[in-house]
Amino acid sequence: MNAGGSYENTKAFLIDTTKCTGCRGCQVACKQWNQLEGEKTHFFSGEGYQNPPQMSEYTFTRVKFKDYKKNGQNEFAFYKEMCMHCNEPACASVCPVGALKKTAEGPVVYEADKCIGCRFCMMACPFGVPKYEWSKAFPLVRKCTGCYSRIKNGLHPACATACPTAITYGTRAEMIKEAENRIKNRPQRYYPKIYGQHEAGGTGVLYLTHQPLDELGFKPVTSRPLPSYTWQALRMVPGIFLTVGGSLSALSWFTHRKERIKREEEMLGKGRSPEAEAHEDREERP
């Protein structure tokens, strides 16, 4: 983990939903690059032509459709959901075996060989991203890889490459600047907030929208990095261990003192059987 470091130069996605046409090229490109199975769907699973119903072990990214009205006029909005590649990922922080980790380049990647399949990452992710291979007897976790293998080789992620309009890819600092510029240049087009700039302590996916975020289905998420919430407790572990262990030891040393002294005396003196000792104790009962 790039603990406490700056994420300015990690790679980030700027997804401008005002420019997204809902073409779902990204969704298909992702499946192609990652060779994910097509899901069996029926009709449409949500508003508009939305499908499949959720991100899943087979679907790392999905375009959500939102059919609604504003001032009596139709609106049709689209937004691509995917792993947010958090600066300080909750998923990675809770993984007992460190199978998930934030790379220096930006993507939060997953080492399948380490994973024990406990699904804590799924519980922890504030965006509901990691998915599980429910169909398998020995399942693993699956999620967007940020196309780490591509960016390691100088390419952009498959989805960003396929997208005709909405996705820009670059360093996080550049993307934030670009987003700020867009908001400044066309204030009537944009809702003045960059989702992901502060959410969960900042993420590697940044969104611009036309409408207030909650209307589009963005979850409000705390701006404090999630790992810090558990760390504030976990960091006390050694302290607690030593305190509890130490004080109980001290206490027992103290409580056993009388007995010990007695035994020492006995060793020196008459040598009574332990049974007798115990009986004595029993007799002391009030």
Binding site: P96, A99, P227, T230, L234
Partner: peptide, 13 residues
């Protein structure tokens, strides 16, 4: 694996 791959930040670890 939990014995081998340590993640001190994980309560589950």
């Amino acid at each position: 694996h939990t014995l081998v791959y340590w993640n001190l930040h994980s309560p589950m670890f």
